[in-house]
């Protein structure tokens, strides 16, 4: 048979080398990206005896959840041996008011800046934006002095205020961009109907804000949960968030480190943002696209 097929119908497909290398590259890189997560999980279920053998990539031979229990309730930082649970609850106590307050103030600011021409609002916005790029270190010391002089230092209120202040640029930008894209006719129509500042916000603008509220919540929950430097500086002894506690547990160990406990504590700390990430799916991507300023 030497007859060549008459070209007809779809082009014959073959898995080309190009196609294979695309998948090859993606799979190899994906494995590299997964290794740390794998190591973290595997280690957290191993006994210290098994860890001392040094097979960091191996799945635990003698599976144990002991390290998780220890990490949660009895891992030590210096002399205190209470695990990360205190930090977890501290983080929750910081997280909830900070997220609510920063989104409330951010949306209010974005709304006022978009629809009203208050003198100086534009300058305010520009300074806020620039502020988002400046490392916290530039502000921290004077802020600590200010906070101690008004009694906010080392307090839950203090750390919440700090989160709101440093979350303000991103939140304002987010809401201002979103509201700026809404048709101005909506606002004008409500105004012609006689609605005031708050009435328009409540009945017209907020009902249309759910997408941006979701994005803002995702950004703030992960951002505030993951914060270290602000919690370290402002929360004080009694409100230390989980990241600070975790770092203390791992990095202030005397003698041999309990790597399995460390990794269990690390996973527990990463759990909240990871859960937000996996469950929010495309919203998370939308968030980083909208708020890529965070850096």
């Amino acid at each position: 048979m030497s007859a060549v097929a008459v070209p007809q119908g779809p082009r014959p497909r073959s898995l080309s080398i190009g196609r294979l290398s695309v998948y090859g590259f993606l799979i190899v890189v994906a494995l590299c990206f997964l290794v740390p997560l794998w190591v973290m999980i595997a280690t957290s279920f191993k006994t210290m005896d098994e860890i001392r053998l040094g097979h960091v990539l191996a799945w635990p031979a003698s599976f144990t959840i002991e390290p998780w229990l220890k990490a949660w309730s009895s891992a030590c930082t210096g002399l205190a041996c209470d695990g990360v649970k205190i930090g977890f609850w501290n983080s929750v106590r910081i997280l909830i008011p900070s997220v609510i307050a920063s989104i409330a103030i951010g949306s209010l600011t974005g709304y006022a800046m978009t629809f009203y021409r208050v003198r100086g609002a534009r300058t305010l916005f520009v300074i806020l934006l620039l502020g988002a790029f400046i490392p916290y270190q530039v502000f921290l010391y004077p802020l600590v002095r200010m906070f101690s002089s008004i009694g906010l230092y080392d307090s839950l209120t203090g750390i919440v205020v700090v989160h709101v202040v440093f979350g303000l640029p991103l939140m304002t930008l987010l809401f201002r961009n979103y509201y700026g894209a809404l048709p101005i006719e909506l606002f004008n129509a409500a105004r012609v109907d006689g609605a005031g500042f708050l009435a328009i916000l409540r009945h017209v603008i907020l009902p249309m804000s759910s997408p941006i509220l979701i994005v803002a919540t995702i950004l703030q929950v992960t951002g505030i949960w993951n914060d270290f430097i602000l919690g370290l500086t402002f929360a004080g002894r009694s409100n230390r968030p989980m990241t600070v506690l975790l770092n203390n547990i791992v990095n202030s160990t005397q003698g041999e480190a309990a790597y399995n406990v460390d990794m269990a504590a690390t996973i527990i700390t990463a759990l909240v943002p990871l859960a937000v990430y996996f469950f929010s799916g495309r919203w998370f991507v939308r968030g980083i696209a909208a708020g890529a300023v965070k850096g």
């Binding site: 008459v6 070209p7 007809q8 119908g9 779809p10 082009r11 014959p12």
Partner: peptide, 18 residues
């Protein structure tokens, strides 16, 4: 765009797979 069936000829040549 791939055709599912049939042929396309241009200038006297079968270009369906071209």
């Amino acid at each position: 765009l791939d055709v599912a069936e049939g042929q396309i000829w241009i200038g006297g040549k079968n270009v369906t797979w071209a």
